Simulated scan of single mutants.
Amino acid sequence: MWREIQGCNNWKGLLDPMDSHLRKEIIRYGEFAQSCYDSFDYDPHSKYCGTCKYQPSHFFDKINMLKKGYEMKRYLYATSNINLPNFFQKSKMSNVWSQHANWMGYVAVATDPEEIKRLGRRDIVVAWRGTVTYLEWIHDLQDILHPAHFRDDPNIKIETGFFDMYTKKENNCHYASFSAREQILAEINRLIEKYQGEELSITITGHSLGAALALLSAYDIAGKSITKIIPISVFSFAGPRVGNLKFKERCEELGIKVLRVINVHDKVPTVPGISYAHVGAELALDHHRSPFLKPNSDLGCAHNLEAHLHLVDGYHGKVRAFRSATGRDVALVNKDSSFLKEEYGVPPFWWQDENKGMVRTSDGQWVLPERPVIEAHPPDTAHHFQQVLKLARARLNLP
């Protein structure tokens, strides 16, 4: 029933009561999004601030996700965005890995035979990074709609900050020489060519601002003839609105399936303003239903991704009691929050690098070790992006 789980029927009959298979898949894709937080270097005192802490080949091992059965294919970067300045993290040091770029997420693909058999297809997953400091970036959102120039209809519009983050590039920066858009389209094209003839799915996930990028990239990918009959699904967590009604209608025409997981006490899904429309089905959760969580915690807790996954784990239906279905560890809620009730004895904000990444050298000095240089972009990125444009022009009968 993988197509139903991916939303071919818009999850009709699977949300209330909650289908057990769907619950596990929502949590699984939420963990892909959470991995972007767990691996991102937020420390402004590190010259690597704004990048991923781990090499791509070691990524899933470092965050204990090897059993997921996926292989990392490429990292995604975006350049500093003037319309969302508080979202980007920058080092206070002068000698840094990049003056312009931030690591934004990754593309991975199912390669383990047992996982492919379980899924019923080879799954391509795209995970976008959000931000835990949402109260800062959310105020930067402008109620200004920008035409999506990569579509032929000028009436299809999206929030200007999201558009800029997705399309901007910086030729003087190694990591931002291709826009996030160019990177994602090129990689999807490369993987579709590589696994031609196999049954594929494309699943895109993200939390917070990452949820907006997930929907935007799904819309862009679906609009290209490269995907044809490949199903595209978005598992969105605590995401804001992205575009206008025309954008919503076009997403539906393209067959994009979107499941939006929200906490009814979170403010982010209510912005930007009334000129915007949400896309897809909604799974509305209420943290007051969980006996583990503080009922009147701050707004940041209500927005927290691990809290959302905890609520999915305990949700069985709108009128059914909260009860853990998968045994998900409740301590995970406090990884980067103070949301758990104190009686459970879990310290707040406990997820951190040992010694903040500092290591002791043979002469007794404590230093932040150098990291291996990560390849900015695969050498065939430009080729695959041009292939995407060529196919799109052919579909529209353009020269």
Rank of each mutant, 00 (worst) to 15 (best):
M1D: 07
R3F: 15
G7S: 04
P17F: 01
S20H: 11
L22N: 01
G30H: 01
A33K: 00
C36W: 07
D38M: 02
S39M: 06
T51S: 07
C52Y: 09
C52R: 05
Y54S: 02
Q55A: 14
F59M: 07
F60M: 07
F60T: 04
F60N: 04
N64L: 10
M65T: 05
M72Y: 07
Y75Q: 09
Y75G: 06
L76W: 05
T79S: 10
S80Y: 11
I82L: 15
F88P: 08
Q89R: 12
M93Y: 11
V96L: 07
N102D: 14
W103I: 05
G105C: 02
V109Q: 03
A110Q: 11
T111G: 13
T111C: 08
T111H: 13
D112I: 11
D112S: 13
I116H: 03
G120A: 05
I124F: 06
V125M: 05
R129A: 06
T131Y: 12
T131H: 06
T133L: 09
Y134H: 15
I138P: 00
D143Q: 06
H146K: 11
I158L: 12
G161F: 00
F162P: 00
D164P: 08
M165R: 04
Y166C: 01
K169C: 03
N171H: 09
R181S: 12
L191F: 12
G206Y: 01
S217C: 05
A218P: 00
Y219F: 14
I229T: 12
I232T: 10
S236Y: 01
F237I: 01
A238F: 03
G239R: 08
R241K: 10
G243V: 00
K246H: 13
F247L: 08
E249M: 12
C251I: 02
C251M: 03
E253Y: 09
K257S: 14
V258H: 13
L259I: 01
R260L: 14
V261D: 13
H265P: 08
H265A: 05
V268E: 04
I274N: 14
S275K: 10
V279I: 02
A281D: 03
A284D: 12
L285F: 15
H287E: 10
H288W: 09
H288L: 09
S290W: 02
P291Y: 06
N296D: 10
H303D: 04
N304Y: 08
H308K: 14
H310E: 03
H310V: 00
L311D: 00
G314E: 04
H316I: 08
G317H: 01
V319N: 14
R320Y: 14
S324C: 05
A325V: 07
A325W: 12
D329K: 08
D329C: 10
A331F: 13
L332N: 08
L332Y: 10
K335R: 05
S337T: 03
S338K: 10
L340N: 05
K341R: 07
G345M: 01
F349K: 09
E354R: 13
N355A: 15
N355Q: 10
N355Y: 15
K356G: 15
K356N: 11
M358F: 14
V359W: 13
V359I: 10
T361F: 06
S362R: 08
L368V: 11
V373N: 15
A376I: 02
P378S: 04
P379S: 14
D380N: 10
H384W: 07
V388Y: 02
V388H: 02
A392W: 09
L396R: 07
L398W: 11
